[in-house]
């Protein structure tokens, strides 16, 4: 289960960072940064809520 969660979260992270990059290229820098922020939260959150408990 843990491996599945790590892989799924990493895939979503990469997907979201890719989307943030495409927003950056479209000159929507604030949008890109907000999406990147979400991606980082999604990457970090499982550590605090699932793996630490």
């Amino acid at each position: 289960m843990n491996a599945f969660i790590v892989i799924a979260v990493c895939i979503v992270f990469v997907y979201t960072v890719g989307f943030a990059l495409s927003l950056w290229k479209q000159k929507n820098k604030i949008g890109a940064m907000a999406v990147l922020f979400l991606a980082v939260i999604a990457l970090v959150l499982p550590y605090f809520s699932y793996f630490q408990s």
Binding site: A8, V12, Y15, F19, V35, L38, A39, A42, P46, F48
Partner: peptide, 11 residues
């Protein structure tokens, strides 16, 4: 943005 929100809501 749906997948990233799903992950955040889940955790």
């Amino acid at each position: 943005l749906v997948p990233v929100f799903i992950v955040i809501v889940l955790f």
